[in-house]
């Protein structure tokens, strides 16, 4: 049978777990979504043949 303080500690622990899980999940989801979308954009364009090739070009 749980005593009051122990039950309280368990409740705090449970809350902490939820908070940490939410923060970790949000960070991972944000990185995945924003990073993935930007990475998939593929907005790099090939260099036109008609002009000089420059070291600064992809």
């Amino acid at each position: 049978m749980k005593t009051g303080p122990i039950a309280g500690a368990a409740g705090i622990g449970s809350t902490l777990n939820v908070i940490v899980a939410a923060v970790v999940g949000a960070a991972a989801a944000t990185a995945l979504t924003v990073g993935g979308v930007n990475a998939a954009k593929g907005d790099q364009k090939p260099v036109a043949q008609s002009k000089l090739s420059q070291y600064s070009e992809k």
Partner: peptide, 24 residues
Amino acid sequence: APGRESLWAVAGLLVVAPMLLLPS
């Protein structure tokens, strides 16, 4: 520790974060 098991997720996130942040 008991009640703080979710900190495993923090450790896991730190391990995979470099890959998540640079999928390119």
